[in-house]
């Protein structure tokens, strides 16, 4: 299923939506030396971005689309950090771990079943919420990029400046925006 613009849904919602929202908020974020926290996942590992077919039109698999969208999350955090950390804006990705929420409830078919099975081992949402709070509350902005249970974690080797830049440019094109041209609050 695609969005109204004909984009693959998970890529559009999990990644592009946050990309566009951050763009809209950018002046305020810069003014406040803000922090952007993006919800990622452990499942961003062991996958590459399918640059030639980002929407997975040729061979769609919902779980691959999910994994790829989670890699996009951490690449976007990296892209933001590379561009704006000098100006005081910080960006992080949080891996909430497996949480017992209503994820997967509306998917139907095998995806529904996979999530049902996985979620049984999930923790309460209170646990990952502590990591978000931790990143917000530190007086001095934490230096890392990827956090799980309030601790910095290693991430996929796919998270490079080159990939982050490529995704940033692609996302700008797909959203019809340019971060560089966003006017600053006066």
């Amino acid at each position: 299923m695609t969005t109204e613009d004909g984009y693959e849904q998970q890529f559009a919602l999990n990644h592009l939506a946050g990309f566009l929202l951050t763009y809209q908020l950018l002046p305020a974020l810069l003014q406040a030396n803000g922090r952007v926290i993006i919800t990622g996942s452990q499942s961003h590992k062991h996958i590459k971005i399918h640059w030639k077919d980002v929407m997975l039109q040729k061979r769609y698999n919902p779980l691959i689309a999910y994994k790829q969208s989670k890699l996009c999350n951490i690449l976007f955090a990296k892209g933001l950090k590379d561009r704006y950390s000098q100006q005081g804006l910080k960006a992080y990705t949080v891996d909430p771990g497996l949480v017992n929420t209503d994820i997967g409830n509306k998917c139907g078919g095998i995806v529904d079943w996979v999530w049902k099975f996985r979620k049984n081992h999930g923790v309460s949402a209170k646990i990952p919420a502590q990591t978000y709070a931790y990143l917000c509350e530190q007086e001095e902005a934490p230096k890392g990029l990827y956090y799980y249970l309030c601790k910095e974690q290693t991430y996929s080797r796919q998270v490079t400046t080159e990939n982050a830049d490529q995704l940033f440019m692609l996302s700008e094109r797909l959203c019809g925006i340019q971060y560089g041209k966003r006017s600053v609050l006066k």
Binding site: E4, D5, C175, G176
Partner: peptide
């Protein structure tokens, strides 16, 4: 009309 505009933008951008 709205849907048509969305898919037009999406395709032109993509």
């Amino acid at each position: 009309a709205r849907g048509l505009y969305s898919i037009q933008c999406g395709i032109e951008r993509q």
